[in-house]
């Protein structure tokens, strides 16, 4: 495979990894602090994309759409937390899985009812619609590079928030011993709500970013959700740093697997079966890696401290 194509695929993988990280960060925070499995986190990514696409169409500007979609996504998250999730914190994982599964069914159908089943178009911002030459004759879309940059900036901001601020300190303390934090006079319920809303907003942010390059349609969050779960399990549940590294790993593995494995299989098989076997292997690759990591290191690659 030519080196240019490899570079493009690696950048695509990085960009998928960044989106995964934005979704997985909220998921891992919510699990780390509240021990709450939220299957409905992927729907929040979908909601973000729909809100972004609709608001961008209304205002006629991607940037206004983005700025308005973030508080809207935050609001959706808070409403869900107050209406449903709050009642599930003390319950077992089974109840949490099921109730959030119900939320998925509801919101996927609600989106289908409101916006229809057809994918919603979302325009890229003018200023980022061009390409940047990676090497002579090879353009890479500026928008995708912008996603990578935005994701890295968010990761940095998140690291600062969690490691260097008072709020982040409370979140970390809550993750290792919630009753103790509560006994020290912190309103743990409000802390939970804040973390939850913030996670929903991050997922919504990822949704808006993904809007122009993936199709905005009902159920778009489901597949990403499963990948995000793979990410937090590989990275170690509750660990932001683990989620970041695992997200990049999964993004690169998935994207490079899809382009490289069919080529690789051609060394052993005829072209047509090689393409099929390669594609099948590629779609299974991340799950195989996850199963292997869980079997060898059940706590993940970078387990959260104190958890």
């Amino acid at each position: 495979m030519p080196i240019g194509l490899l570079l493009v695929q690696a950048l695509n993988g990085l960009q998928l990894g960044i989106l995964l990280f934005l979704v997985a960060a909220g998921l891992t925070l919510v699990f780390g602090v509240m021990h709450f499995i939220n299957l409905a986190h992927g729907v929040q990514y979908m909601l973000g994309a729909y809100l972004g696409a609709t608001l961008a169409a209304w205002t006629g500007s991607f940037w206004l759409g983005l700025v308005l979609a973030l508080p809207a996504a935050l609001l959706c998250g808070l409403v869900l937390e107050v209406a449903v999730f709050r009642h599930l914190y003390g319950r077992d994982h089974l109840s949490q899985v099921l109730a959030t599964f119900g939320v998925i069914l509801f919101l996927n159908e609600a989106v289908r009812t409101l916006w229809g089943s057809a994918p919603l178009p979302m325009a890229m911002p003018e200023s980022l619609s061009g390409g940047i030459p990676l090497m002579p004759g090879l353009l890479y879309p500026t928008y995708r590079l912008a996603i990578i940059a935005a994701g890295l900036a968010t990761a940095l901001l998140l690291w600062f928030l969690v490691e260097r601020t008072r709020l982040g300190m409370l979140v970390r303390a809550g993750a290792s011993n919630a009753p103790m934090v509560s006994a020290l006079g912190v309103d743990i319920g409000r802390l939970f709500t804040a973390v939850f809303g913030f996670g929903a907003m991050l997922a919504g942010f990822a949704g808006v970013l993904a809007g122009p390059i993936f199709s905005v349609e009902p159920g778009m969050g489901d597949n990403l959700l499963i990948l995000a779960f793979v990410v937090i399990v590989i990275g170690g549940i509750g660990s932001i740093r683990g989620a970041f590294l695992a997200a990049l790993l999964v993004g690169l593995l998935d994207t490079l697997g899809r382009s490289l494995l069919p080529e690789l299989m051609r060394l052993f098989l005829a072209p047509s079966p090689a393409r099929q076997a390669g594609a099948a292997l590629a779609s299974m690759l991340v799950y195989v890696v996850m199963a292997a990591i869980l079997a060898l290191r059940p706590a993940g690659l970078f387990p959260a401290r104190g958890a």
Binding site: V84, H87, L88, R91, S95, L98, A99, F101, G102, V103, I104, L105, F106, L107, N108, E109, A110, R112, T113
Partner: peptide
């Protein structure tokens, strides 16, 4: 046709109120 709009909330209610 949008029966999941009712089914989803019923599932949530069943989990919360019918343990």
């Amino acid at each position: 046709a949008h029966w999941r709009l009712l089914f989803g909330p019923l599932l949530v209610l069943a989990v919360i109120f019918l343990p």
